[in-house]
């Protein structure tokens, strides 16, 4: 019994989630006048940035793997 998702599956999931979060965070930004939605926009933005960073880390690991492989 092991976790069924590989590192690259999680990287893909992070990519999709990051895109959704970043677009949502940008569309409900107060700079566009959308101030009727009652959620903590700052926290949503922070989460989207963290998920994006995690995805970029997996990309960096992938690149490092390719470079260092014989």
């Amino acid at each position: 019994m092991g976790f069924p998702l590989t590192f690259w599956d999680i990287s893909l999931w992070l990519a999709v989630t990051a895109i959704i979060l970043l677009i949502t965070s940008e569309l409900i930004s107060p700079y566009y006048g959308k101030t009727n939605i009652l959620i903590n926009k700052k926290r949503l933005r922070n989460v989207s940035l963290i998920v994006s960073t995690l995805f970029l880390i997996t990309v960096a690991i992938r690149i490092a793997t390719i470079i260092t492989s014989p």
């Binding site: 976790f3 069924p4 998702l5 999931w13």
Partner: peptide
């Protein structure tokens, strides 16, 4: 985890 199902893992994680 019990049934080694990727789809269920994606759904659960999401």
């Amino acid at each position: 985890i019990m049934f080694i199902s990727t789809i269920l893992a994606f759904i659960g994680l999401g």
